[in-house]
Design a protein around this nucleic acid. Structure first.
Length: 310
DNA sequence: CTTATGACCTGATAGC
DNA sequence: TGCTATCAGGTCATAA
């Protein structure tokens, strides 16, 4: 579900509620959504078995029980709650994950399936500006369970192990760094943008939107990209992500922020979800097809050979 | 090494 | 109404 703008919107909402809060308790309703630092889950797994989070109880302190929430941060599509103790709880939302907050005595945004997919619940008090500091609950909800929580004992483990290999955050991506990390091969430029080792935060929606704005064909090989083309792509990636954050992200169906509010940026999509429609710039019928195994929409005129080469 | 492919899950929707 | 097929915002391991 969420790409960088949606995760950033969630981060900001969650921070308003829990920054400085004391975590009074944690309930793990589904153990298998939590991977600890002993599980090589999160970029280091080399076998299928190793991906499975270790069974057994997770010590509540590892999920910040008794701790204070010192910061709520984000890199790419990953969120992290950092405790005063230094412990880190990384939250991956995957395709359908949500973090939701409710004030004391308040109900959570309701799901059609009730609370069946509310996998982890934190209780907190004295936190945040929002809710009058009355405290409340923070919930990790994820019906498809492509997301999960990944724990690190400290920032060194977070950055050196969990996030080793993660590319620079897309919101501040510079052209030179993007070109270098994407490399030069037959690989499609869209595939490179979706690779979190190249660039952290871009997913299927914003890859298509940024490439349309940059007038670069999604299947154009990275080998054929020159400095000017990369500069346009880097600039449009930053631009579209920034605009989307200001609009509260893109809600296609499920996405909401931590208070259940939908984002407004889907209205501004120029290509994503518009295959068969007219290009907003030139009127040509937008094409749709699979690129990098993901549904992709582009304008054959604006992003054709002429557009792709400037 | 790089790149492609299928797997992992559940829910919403479209079509019959 | 109810069944089935298709699709979905993202990674992961493994095959090629």
């Amino acid at each position: 579900m969420p790409e960088l703008p949606e995760v950033e919107t969630v981060r900001s909402t969650v921070a308003q509620w829990v920054l400085g809060a004391r975590v009074t308790g944690v309930t793990v309703r589904r153990r298998d959504v939590v991977a600890t630092e002993h599980d090589p889950f999160g970029g280091f797994s080399r076998t299928r078995e190793a991906v499975k989070p270790r069974p057994g109880r997770v010590p509540a302190a590892w999920l910040l029980a008794g701790d204070r929430v010192a910061s709520v941060e984000r890199v790419g599509k990953q969120l992290v709650l950092v405790g005063g103790s230094g412990r880190c709880v990384v939250v991956h939302l995957g395709m359908s994950g949500q973090l939701l907050v409710a004030g004391r005595g308040e109900r959570l945004p309701r799901a059609a399936w009730g609370d069946a997919h509310d996998h982890v619940v934190w209780r907190f008090e004295d936190g945040g500006r929002a809710g009058g500091g009355s405290g409340g609950r923070l919930v990790f909800r994820d019906p498809r369970r492509f997301g999960g929580l990944r724990l690190s004992p400290d920032r060194a483990h977070l950055e050196g192990v969990r996030w080793a290999g993660l590319g620079p955050d897309a919101l501040g991506i510079e052209s030179d760094a993007l070109a270098e990390r994407a490399g030069s091969s037959e690989r499609a430029v869209k595939a490179a943008l979706l690779d979190q080792r190249v660039l952290a935060g871009v997913g299927n929606i914003y890859a298509d939107e940024a490439l349309f704005r940059a007038r670069v064909h999604p299947e154009r090989p990275t080998r054929s990209m020159d400095g000017r083309a990369w500069a346009r792509v880097a600039s449009e990636v930053r631009g579209v992500l920034g605009e989307a954050i200001r609009a509260g992200g893109s809600t296609l169906r499920d996405y909401t922020d931590a208070r259940g509010n939908a984002g407004g940026f889907a209205l501004a999509h120029a290509v994503y979800g518009r295959g068969g429609g007219s290009c907003l710039v030139c009127g040509t019928t937008l094409l749709s097809g699979a690129v990098a195994q993901r549904t992709t929409v582009w304008c054959p005129s604006c992003q054709g050979a002429g557009g792709a080469h400037g």
